[in-house]
């Protein structure tokens, strides 16, 4: 079950860290979320990447279904003894994480530079 469909994340390798930047402004639509989820999971399941930064610079909207995919991603990375960090989350979106207390589950950094520090 390869990623299928249009690419929804940009991948950049910084040293041994994979920076995955969401392309979409809105991570809302069910189909979209499914594709994004599969592309994210592929980084771990297929590519065997273990140090991953998810960059939210472009993301303006995010639904609870997308949070579900992020939680699953976090589990996958931890299961592979890797590390996942999130960065560049705008205040509105950060509130979504804070309300659901997922800011405690995820390792969230202000920006990409900080996310790469000491990784």
């Amino acid at each position: 079950m390869a990623t299928g469909g249009q690419r929804r994340i940009d991948i950049e390798d910084v040293g041994d860290v994979t920076v995955a930047r969401f392309i979409d402004k809105k991570i809302l639509d069910e189909t979209n979320i499914q594709i994004i989820g599969n592309q994210l999971f592929g980084l771990v399941d297929e590519d065997g990447r273990k140090k991953i930064v998810l960059d939210f610079t472009n993301v303006e909207y995010l639904s609870s279904a997308a949070l579900g995919k992020l939680i699953t991603m976090d589990k996958k990375v931890k299961g592979a003894k890797g590390k996942l960090r999130l960065c560049s989350i705008r205040p509105d979106i950060y509130e979504v994480f804070a309300i659901t207390k997922l800011n405690k589950l995820f390792d969230i950094r202000d920006d990409q530079e900080k996310a790469l520090e000491g990784f």
């Binding site: 609870s64 699953t72 589950l105």
Partner: peptide, 15 residues
């Protein structure tokens, strides 16, 4: 429940 991937929609609507 924190790591369960669903059940947050209602909470977000309320907030």
């Amino acid at each position: 429940n924190l790591e369960r991937p669903c059940g947050r929609g209602l909470m977000l609507m309320r907030s």
